[in-house]
Nucleic acid binder design. Structure first.
Lengths: 125, 125
DNA sequence: CTTATTGTATTAAGTGATTAATACAATAAG
DNA sequence: CTTATTGTATTAATCACTTAATACAATAAG
């Protein structure tokens, strides 16, 4: 599955978000191995250096770890994953509330629209 | 009020978002005059060229218009403003629903959290 | 007419992101 | 031991964004 990148943001930051979201959602299974940087580079149509840059950052954040010649793996630290998931959700909600308030929505109106949109989405989860 | 920019995105794009949000929310009054590019550049701590680049884009989108030597103004086209407001809201909601679903939230759980966060915010609107 | 302010255009320089092309160290596999 | 694959590091080139320093055209104000 080819992933599209926007030019609005550096690719390595978009990669960070992509993988982080995968880890937080569990789509990337804890303890499982990631494709190598060269393989991911081909998959995403970017340079291996760019992939490396993103993964190293996620490693410093404790979401990934490396075994020297075996490859890179998703952390098995459930608490760490849960924490990141919580941070992502909090930030999403805060930003969303701020934006929608700024646009003049009220609470009831928003909840209705949201509930409707939720059903419309072909929800996998 | 000094505005902070992130290095995650080009400044001119952040300026576009800032002004567009102002127009869509009505914080920038329809028909009212904006500060000059030089003045805005000082206010935001950026280069006049960068401000110009952002405002020209918003002009092409029909949110602003220019009178040659008088300055730049917010459109008075209420329909256009309403349309942009709707687009912004739709995009916000779509992204939000997608993200929260991906993180494994269910609808009821989300609505509760959201309602709570809404009250916590020192809502101006 | 003169002056000041408006948007606009241009050029050069600096910075960061990205790519390409390598190379190296470590280790599992044969 | 040899080989292949892993992450990692380095160098140079290119491109977009940003800034700085101007300059110009149009017009309202004096």
């Amino acid at each position: 599955m080819p992933v599209e990148f926007t030019s609005d943001m550096p690719i390595y930051l978009q990669l960070i978000r992509l993988v982080r979201q995968g880890v937080a959602s569990g789509e990337l299974v804890p303890g499982s191995r990631l494709p190598g940087v060269r393989e991911m580079a081909i998959e995403y149509g970017v340079n291996p250096n760019t992939v490396q840059r993103a993964l190293v950052k996620l490693e410093r954040d404790g979401l990934l770890y490396t075994e020297r010649t075996a490859g890179r793996f998703v952390t098995a630290d459930a608490a760490r994953i849960a924490a990141v998931r919580g941070e992502l959700a909090d930030r999403q909600i805060d930003d969303f509330v701020r934006q929608m308030k700024s646009l003049g929505y009220n609470c009831r109106q928003l909840l209705e629209t949201l509930e409707k949109k939720w059903s419309d989405h072909n929800g996998d989860d």
